[in-house]
Computed example of a mutant assay.
Amino acid sequence: MRYIKAKWIHNSPEFPILLFSELDAKHWEIRKVEVYADGRMDFADGKVQSGNTDLGLVPVPSLEEIASDPEFEPVATSAEEFEAIWKVAKAGNL
């Protein structure tokens, strides 16, 4: 598994400002967390989702390709960081 975090730079409160994804070997999203400027978090996996968050319909591009868009600042992250944000998102949406 790979884990990525991307900061999304924009001024619209209706869209998330942080995106966390757990990816399989072919870059398909397994789980995702979206964090909004107001602190709200939504999540999705293959079985459940909250808010408007859903898994991607295509594989996630490489970090370099994502970074080529100036609206995004992607970085690799750890399984531990992903699991921590996943637990918080799920707990806030139960």
Rank of each mutant, 00 (worst) to 15 (best):
Y36A: 00
N11Y: 14
V33H: 01
T77C: 10
K7F: 13
W28D: 04
D42N: 12
A84D: 09
P61E: 13
P61I: 08
S12A: 14
A89K: 01
S12M: 12
V75N: 11
A6I: 08
I9L: 10
A67G: 13
A44Y: 04
P13R: 02
R2Y: 13
G46H: 03
A25G: 12
V48A: 15
G46F: 00
S12K: 11
A76W: 13
G39T: 08
I30G: 01
H10T: 05
Y3H: 07
F43G: 03
K47R: 13
I66C: 05
A67T: 05
V35L: 03
V35F: 01
R40D: 00
L23M: 09
L55A: 08
Y36G: 02
A91E: 07
D69Q: 06
V58Q: 12
S78L: 04
N11D: 15
T53A: 13
L94I: 09
V35R: 03
R2P: 01
N52K: 15
F43D: 11
L19P: 07
L19K: 14
K87T: 15
F15A: 06
W8A: 13
E22C: 10
L23E: 13
V48L: 15
L94H: 09
I4V: 14
S50A: 11
L57A: 05
P16W: 07
K47M: 07
L57C: 03
R40C: 00
K90P: 04
S12N: 15
F43R: 08
V58A: 12
G51Y: 08
P13G: 06
F72D: 06
V88M: 11
